[in-house]
Design a protein around this nucleic acid. Structure first.
Lengths: 296, 296
DNA sequence: GAGGACCTTTGCATGAGTGCACAGACTATG
DNA sequence: CATAGTCTGTGCACTCATGCAAAGGTCCTC
């Protein structure tokens, strides 16, 4: 590299000092040592033969040349970020297995996401596990988890996607000519004890109401749609289903956040990273209750 | 730097391969080793999770992603070049006064440096002060000082350029047919008391030797060249002057280091900085006694 | 078919870049 | 006035990027 040629890798250092006003601030921003920033700035100024910053006791202040550099450099930064965003993770040669664990109802509702991802990366072998038992990411059973939770595990990469609401639903035909005390309630087995679904059910179900017990939310959904009774379901299931009627307004206090989780070691994988970013964007774009997606 | 973040310094490598079509071509273009280009491309593709080039037997061909990178990257390159031209090129638009204080003999010997600098920066108004009184940089009388000293001031930016040797010289004609005790000694007035020149003179001059006293080293030099006597001179003056003969080997214990000094506040000035770096390189390249430069 | 010119890829040694630890300065607060 | 928190700046040791040397492949020319 010529003595008079600026090193491209100097640019982020200069921009960081411009934005933070100090070597220390830039070092924190860039996650490097402040002495590295110091030497980089010295090197840039030496090679350009121009002073970019006035050294004051409380930090570095841009000179006119520094201001100029910043204005130009900010555009460069946007350009680099654009390249990264548009190319990063787009490896169309992505292949190998990608294991996602989720609930059966989320699997059902998120089929548009999985479909689009599979079309984009046909060589990736999707493994979509819907075992309702809480799995242990540490055991490497899955690489990504998409689950509602109020207590996401620490030290894991987690994205809070959106809140999930819950309410009671029934077939509109079922509700006609029937008093609430006569409703048959479709319940899930006790594994999700104290869950919002169970708590809302307890609030609305008559004490002696007849019940049907099933082992999955999708089972509940099928039974509700068949007109066999009333069930508390996630609104992303109950809404956008024309034949179902909601019995009451969902209460925000019962909301649970939907999280996407990945173990830090696993996120380095290009396909995991690609999926993580891809699914995050798609789910957040889908709106409340995934209203953009037609209920199957 | 995050594993998934592209390194800015990778960009020129990718662009060079795009433009030349091979690792070897890019290496020549960038003046680096082809193995370096190889590793950089591998690193970028790994971090972005995307393939930028198809590897063919005759070189590297851009993939669609590579084309995309190139289109974006080309604009970045233009941006970087613009910064360099608009800031780095400020050297060539350097203007204003630049005040250098030095000795008269150094001014004499360093004319090649000043000449080249003036040609390079025609808009800079050089002020070359050779007042032999020690000036006070703090008073901002000068921006740069080039002077021999054993005690460079602290807190100032100082470059130790090279050691200066001293010895006695006379015209070769003057020395013929004359005993040392008969030598007329050319002395400088007492301002530089205990200086190496004075100390060497005291060591070689006969106690009752006749003297001529002048007020500058250049005056001494002119008188010596005229054959009027013997004088202790800096070797950078005495050497490379064909008509002068040195009377004895210079003793290293009398050497004094030549320093270039600038006040820290002033070094931020682009033209001071430019001169500082430029002159340092030229003086150090000139060799002992500035032997690369012909004595005027 | 051999040789030359071009290319890519890899192991090893070296030096540049970086982080660490330290020192010093300035400012605000008790 | 002492202390804490922030900052800049530097010497030293270590890590990693780079160049060097080597190996291997393909294509073209004689």
């Amino acid at each position: 590299m010529s003595a008079q040629t600026m090193d491209w890798s100097d640019i982020p250092y200069v921009l960081a000092v411009c934005e933070t006003g100090s070597l220390s601030g830039a070092a924190r921003y860039l996650d490097v040592n402040h002495s590295t920033v110091f030497r980089r700035i010295e090197g840039v100024e030496s090679r350009l033969g121009v002073t970019l910053f006035e050294r004051l006791s409380h930090g570095y202040v841009m000179t006119a040349a520094g201001e100029h550099f910043y204005q130009q450099g900010i555009e460069l930064k946007e350009g680099v970020t654009r390249i990264q965003r548009e190319l990063g993770g787009q490896d169309l040669r992505l292949e190998g297995a990608l294991t996602v664990t989720t609930t059966d109802s989320l699997l059902h509702r998120l089929t548009p996401v999985f479909l689009e991802f599979q079309q984009l990366y046909p060589d990736v072998e999707l493994r979509l596990l819907t075992d309702i038992r809480r799995f242990d990411l540490g055991q490497m059973d899955a690489e990504v988890a998409i689950r509602p939770t109020r207590n996401p595990p620490e030290h894991w990469i987690g994205r809070n996607l959106l809140p999930i609401a819950y309410a009671a639903y029934a077939h509109s035909n079922y509700l006609q000519g029937m008093a609430p005390e006569e409703y048959r309630w479709i319940l899930i087995d006790d594994i999700l004890n104290r869950s919002p679904m169970n708590r809302i059910t307890a609030e609305h179900k008559a004490m002696s109401a007849p019940v049907i017990i099933t082992s999955s939310v999708m089972g509940m959904f099928d039974l509700v749609r068949a007109g066999m009774g009333v069930a508390v379901l996630p609104c992303y299931m109950g809404e956008n289903t024309p034949e179902l009627a909601r019995l009451h307004e969902p209460e925000p206090k019962y909301n649970v956040d939907l999280w996407m989780l990945a173990h830090p070691d696993i996120r380095r994988s290009a396909r995991v990273h690609a999926f993580f970013e891809f699914a995050t964007a798609r789910i957040r774009d889908a709106g409340p209750d995934f209203s953009s997606w037609k209920q199957a």
